[in-house]
Amino acid sequence: MSTEKDLDAYQEFIKGIWRDNPVFVQVLGMCPMLAVTNSAVNAVVMGGATLFVLVGSSFLVAAMKHLIPKQVRISLYVIIIATFVTVADYTLLALLPKVHKELGAFIPLIVANCMILGRQEAFASRHSVRYAVMDALGMSGGFLLALLALGGVREILGSGSLFNVDLFGDGFEPWVIMILPPGGFLTLGLILLFFNWFTVRRRAFLQRVAALDAEEG
């Protein structure tokens, strides 16, 4: 268990958005990532539901960490997560029946998103409520942004619209492949390629700066 003196709430938040992004860096949650990102609206609703589940579960797990016997902790985490998922499922069914129909089985399957269970075991169960919630907000925020990036690209190319707003008029022939499963793999692969290229370049740049500093010093 690490001490919390050297933790910074902002850093805990921002690491999930960028440095440790659950999708682009940790490559977790691939199932919903590939399956429901055929439009921006689906991506946002999926990301929102995941955010609700992760923040709620992390809050509860951090608040009750001394009450949870460690021998059965994983089962208890799953119970907590499954409860939040069911709440999200019924709420979406009541408020957004059309989107719920499109997301289908992937709302109940949030239970099986290893990003969520992973954050409980790796972070929320070892830190105070404040940091656990910041960490959960960061991770699910990063997940939502990743879904939106994929969903946006696929909807623009595959349907010629964004958030159901037509972008190109009648002259545009949609690339149907982009809203089919192969389009998900293609887009994700290209985004990961960009992300890795960027990381490698940044590392090389930092090394060069360090080398120049050493020369001058």
């Binding site: 268990m1 001490t3 919390e4 003196k5 933790l7 960490k65 001394h66 009450l67 949870i68 016997p69 460690k70 021998q71 059965v72 089962s75 208890l76 119970i79 070892r126 830190h127 105070s128 404040r130 940091y131």
Partner: peptide
């Protein structure tokens, strides 16, 4: 933000585990 104290863990009996679940 105070550090979380490490709790000395005794082996809880299985009754307690079942009750918690």
């Amino acid at each position: 933000s105070t550090p979380v104290p490490v709790q000395p863990q005794r082996e809880p009996g299985s009754t307690r585990l079942v009750l918690a679940m």
